[in-house]
Structure formats: C-alpha cells, structure tokens
Design a binder for these strands. Structure first.
Length: 376
RNA sequence: GUAUCCUUAGUUCAGUUGGUAGAGCACCAGAUUGUGGUUCUGGGUGUCAUGGGUUCGAGCCCCAUAGGAUACC
C-alpha cells in the first residue's frame, strides 16, 4: 500500500491524497461502505461500483470468522474472490463486535473469549490467531485487534484498556510481520489509537503506535457514547501527532456532519453503518437535509427522491413511492434507501475533495454542514 | 321461524359489585455512529351497533330495532 498526499487545505487540516493498493487506488478523503458479512446489505456490487462509486468496502473478521468460516474463505481463495469484489477491502479485527455483540465476553492479557451471537459457541481471539484469520480473509488493509473502550469509561479503566490494546498491538504486529499474505497481493496493517476522551492517554497511544512505523493509522473508540465535541477535540489532538504522509482512518464515524468535521481535522478515511442501517429504517441523507421517509408528509409527494443527488435511484423513484415501500415493509425500500444514502456519502466526500483542491473547503464546509443536517 | 350468544380504538379483544374505557398489532412521531433487515422511546387516534328507559350516575341493568354467529324446526 502507498499513500501519496496531493493537497493540503490552507485554512484547515483537511487534505487530499491517493492510496494505492494491489486492488486499485482510493482517493481520499473517502467513505467506505460497510459490508460486514461480505455484503453491503441490499446493494448489488454492480451498483456499488457504477452508481454509488464505492472505491473500497469493509468486511468484518468477527462475522466472517463465524460464518462462512475460515475453511470456506480459504477454499474460495479469499474474500475478494468469494464475494466477487475486485476493488480494495478493509477488514476490522472484530474487537468492536466482541464488545458490542457478544452476550458473554472475557478479556485477558492473552486475548478475548466470547460467545457467538449466532449459536452461543465459545471462541477466542488472540492477536496471533486474529492475524492468521485476517490473512485468510485477505483484505488489503487489516486492522489490529483492540479493545474499544466505552466513551464514558473512567480514566482508570481507559488506562488499563489502553495497556491491553498496546500489548495486543505489539504481538499483532510481530506476528503480522512474521507471516505472509496468502493470495499473491500485499496486505497492510493499521494500528488503532485508543485512549478514550483522555488527552494524555491518546498522546501515549499515538507515541506507542508510531514506534511501529506503519503505512496508516486508525483512530478508534470515538462516537461510542461521548459528546460529539469531545470526539472533535480528540481528533484535534491526535491528527497533528500522526505523520503527514500516512492516511488516518476514523473508525465507525459517522453522520454527514461528522465526516466534514473529521475531514477538516485531518481525517482521510471513514466507515459507518449509518447510511445503510438508518437507510433501511427510512432515513435518507440528502444535500438539502435529512428525511424520514416513513413520515406521512411524503405520502403524496410525487417529486423525485433527491433532485440534486447523483444516484440512479434519486431521479427514477419518487418520495411517495419510497414511503409506500417502507410502510409496506418491502425489501425494495431498504435497497433504494441504501443505494441513495451510500451514493450521497460518496458524493459528499468527493465534493470535499473538490473543494480542498479548489482551496475553499473551510467556507464550503461551514454552509454545507448546516444544510445537510437540516430536518426535512 | 324459534332459542341462545355476540356488537367497545384502524384491527383482534379486555373492561370487576353501575362511578363517563384499556392491551397487543396497526397507525403517528423520535432515536440509531468499527451492522443481527434490528432494537429502543414517546403518542390513544373512541357517537362503547342504533333508539328509548331505570338511576345522582350506564360499556355494564331493562325494552325495542339493526347486523352477525351457533343450534334446532
């Protein structure tokens, strides 16, 4: 993997760049649709590429490890071949899922033991076997195994949690560097900066991670219960400490406003379930604001979904029709909403890139944030 | 035709010795940030079939009418 920074915004920390992987290039800032189990829910790969214009998607180690399992993934020749996606893929390690999904979990210095949310069976992730697992999945970018500390954790808990994450990171990197990719293309690994909302812990986390000199760094443990302003403060603290010539990935974030504010603070990569999950539940993000498509007000609004959107679905389907599909519980509703929202998120980061290149990102961001977060 | 039972929110139903009604679903709104097509939160939207009567007061008791169910001629 290679990152080439192309342009720095003079008024903010926003920047443009290009990530090059063996599965193609990614223009940053970028939003990465989440495809947990090897599927961006409800969207054809064809539409993801040609309509949404996704440049990279996510998979999840926790889910893929449980189903279909490593034997199938290895036999398929890795996740790219298994799902028929030839552009870059990033996999999360599953640390967050162990924290958010498993009914039973136990963290030890060795690793984390958890119960499957599918059948209750017990499993253990260690940094070492997690590397092996992500080698088998074969993503272009793999994430270190970490503990995602809750946003309201005490300093003492956050400090202890960070120690564990740092210990796991050392072992993860050691094993990663001792092993080889399995399918003939290269993989890179991003450490994850934790530290909750405590500046000294975040600083410590950055210093520790930088010792390993990796090709990119992730910022985790944000948008997990802390106020949004705290998240922005942490980004303002962490990003300047990270090397200018490496991409920064803010994990799990966020709203359209979060993306623009993150970009302004120096973030290059984002992922979030919001456009797809909230889309499935009827929430549409547009340049003019946010619509709840289930609302009665759209019942007989026969105007296009989004006049200023670039997706095929934006002009082809009407608001009244989409509301009808949601109220009727049709899966088609979720498909249309997902495609629209992902298209909007990708449009949003593309517009951000264009304004960074044009040199007017900051002023554009100020007016745009207000507009896109309006409730329609 | 006769007998018995039923009729309460959009719907399926609950409603105590008579004190002017409640639940599930639906509906209306809100939440959702490294995904379990979820889940959570808030909102009752009513001519108690209709018309009379008894009573201080009726969804409840009495009479009539309408509609429905079952059984027997």
């Amino acid at each position: 993997m290679r990152f080439q920074k192309i342009r720095q915004d003079p008024q903010s920390s926003a920047r443009c760049g290009i990530i090059t992987t063996d599965h193609g290039t990614i223009q940053t800032p970028i939003f990465m649709p989440v495809g947990t189990v090897g599927s961006v829910k409800g969207v054809y790969h064809r539409d993801l590429k040609e309509d949404v214009k996704a440049e990279i998607i996510l998979g999840n180690t926790y889910h893929l490890y449980l189903r279909p399992g490593l034997d199938i993934l290895r036999a398929a020749g890795g996740l790219h071949k298994f799902i028929g996606w030839d552009r870059p893929i990033l996999t999360d390690s599953g640390g967050f899922q162990v924290f958010s999904l498993s009914p039973i979990r136990k963290l030890t210095p060795e690793g984390c033991t958890f119960a499957s949310h599918i059948d209750g069976s017990r499993h253990t992730f260690t940094p070492e076997n997690n590397v092996d697992t992500q080698r088998i999945i074969g993503a272009d970018i793999v994430m270190a195994l970490d503990e995602c500390c809750p946003g309201d954790a005490t300093f003492a808990y956050a400090e202890k949690s960070l120690k564990l994450t740092q210990n796991w990171l050392e072992r993860f990197i050691r094993h990663f560097d001792e092993t080889e990719p399995l399918y003939g293309y290269s993989q890179t690994l991003f450490p994850i900066i934790q530290g909750c909302v405590y500046p000294e812990l975040r600083k410590q986390a950055v210093e520790h991670a930088l010792r390993f000199d990796r090709e990119g760094y992730a910022i985790g443990g944000l948008a997990v219960g802390e106020p949004t302003e705290e998240m922005y403060r942490m980004l303002e603290l962490v990003c300047p400490l990270l090397p200018d010539d490496r991409p920064r990935y803010l994990m799990g974030v966020g709203t359209p406003a979060n993306l623009l504010e993150g970009i302004a603070r120096g973030v290059d990569m984002f992922d979030c379930v919001m456009p797809t999950r909230n889309g499935r539940n009827g929430m549409l993000f547009t340049w003019n604001g946010i619509m709840n498509m289930r609302n009665k007000k759209w019942e007989s609004d026969f105007s296009p979904l989004d006049e200023s959107g670039s997706s095929f679905v934006d002009r082809y389907y009407t608001k009244a029709y989409l509301r009808h599909l949601f109220v009727s519980g049709e899966m088609f509703a979720a498909m249309i909403a997902s495609e629209h929202n992902l298209s909007f998120y990708l449009d949003l980061v593309r517009a951000a890139r264009e304004h960074i290149m044009a040199g007017d990102f900051s002023s554009w961001k100020e007016v745009t944030v207000k507009r896109i977060m309006t409730r329609l």
